[in-house]
Amino acid sequence: MQTDKLLHDFCRAVEQRNGKALAALFTEDGVYHDVFYGAFEGRENIAELIDDWFYRTATDFRWDMHDPVSDGRKLYARYTFSYRSLLPEAKGARAMFEGVAIMKLRDGLIVEYGEVANVATGFLDMNFAPERIAKIFARQNAALKARPEMARHIAD
């Protein structure tokens, strides 16, 4: 599958609440590492992430990928992402994020999806209290420090 088509199909599947279509872009044992919800392994779980988890507290998703770079084994793309939050404190606000999608590929399918995102902008859009934002960042920081590649950065 060509990079542009893969990214287009990826974004549209999320926007259309079509977890099955998104999951079909992954290998059977593929893993989606979501910046908020964690890892979802296998097509059935990836479909659930989209159809249930994403739409549990949000609607009207918009996702665009920009400036993709790929060697056929890895794919990087800058993205813009937004949704209308259903959380009470958000009062229907559109939460906007920017990030980078990182995909490992095999035979034109996604083996692993991960992302690095600036989530602070979305939290501000949704009127999150500073204490809530601090808890979220503390969880993300702990998860980051648990990754093996971070060992030499926290050794001191």
Rank of each mutant, 00 (worst) to 15 (best):
Ala93Asp: 06
Ala93His: 07
Ala93Cys: 08
Arg94Val: 15
Ala95Ile: 06
Met96Asn: 13
Met96His: 15
Phe97His: 08
Phe97Val: 05
Phe97Gly: 01
Glu98Val: 11
Glu98Phe: 04
Glu98Trp: 06
Glu98Leu: 06
Gly99Phe: 04
Gly99Arg: 02
Gly99Tyr: 03
Val100Asp: 06
Val100His: 09
Ala101Ser: 15
Ala101Thr: 12
Ala101Tyr: 07
Ala101Gly: 14
Ile102Asn: 11
Ile102Ser: 06
Ile102Ala: 09
Ile102Arg: 14
Met103Ala: 10
Lys104Met: 12
Lys104His: 15
Lys104Leu: 14
Lys104Phe: 11
Lys104Ser: 12
Lys104Trp: 11
Lys104Ala: 13
Leu105Ile: 07
Leu105Tyr: 07
Leu105Gly: 04
Arg106Asn: 01
Gly108Glu: 08
Leu109Asn: 06
Ile110Ala: 03
Ile110Gly: 01
Ile110Leu: 02
Ile110Gln: 03
Val111Arg: 13
Val111Asn: 00
Val111Lys: 07
Val111Tyr: 03
Val111Cys: 12
Glu112Gly: 05
Glu112Phe: 12
Tyr113Glu: 02
Tyr113Cys: 01
Gly114Phe: 01
Gly114Tyr: 00
Glu115Pro: 09
Glu115Leu: 03
Glu115Asn: 07
Ala117Asp: 04
Ala117Cys: 07
Ala117Phe: 01
Asn118Ser: 03
Asn118Lys: 05
Asn118Asp: 13
Val119Met: 12
Val119Arg: 00
Ala120Ile: 06
Ala120Tyr: 12
Ala120Lys: 05
Thr121Ile: 04
Thr121Cys: 04
Thr121Val: 02
Phe123Gln: 08
Phe123Gly: 03
Phe123Pro: 02
Phe123Lys: 03
Phe123Asn: 05
Leu124Trp: 04
Leu124Asn: 08
Leu124Ser: 03
Leu124Pro: 00
Leu124Ile: 09
Asp125Phe: 06
Met126Val: 06
Met126Asp: 09
Asn127Gly: 11
Phe128Glu: 02
Phe128Asp: 01
Phe128Trp: 15
Phe128Ser: 04
Ala129Leu: 12
Pro130Glu: 08
Glu131Ile: 02
Arg132Gln: 08
Arg132Ile: 06
Ile133Lys: 14
Ile133Pro: 11
Ala134Val: 02
Ala134Thr: 11
Ala134Gly: 05
Lys135Asp: 15
Lys135Tyr: 05
Ile136Asn: 04
Ile136Thr: 13
Phe137Lys: 05
Ala138Glu: 15
Ala138Ser: 15
Ala138Val: 05
Ala138Asn: 12
Arg139Asn: 14
Arg139Thr: 13
Arg139Val: 08
Gln140Ser: 09
Gln140Glu: 10
Gln140Pro: 00
Asn141Phe: 12
Ala142Lys: 04
Ala143Gln: 14
Leu144Asn: 03
Lys145Asn: 15
Ala146Gly: 05
Ala146Ser: 15
Ala146Phe: 03
Arg147Gln: 15
Arg147Cys: 08
Pro148Met: 10
Glu149Trp: 13
Ala151Glu: 14
Ile154Glu: 12
Ile154Arg: 08
Ile154Met: 11
Ala155Trp: 02
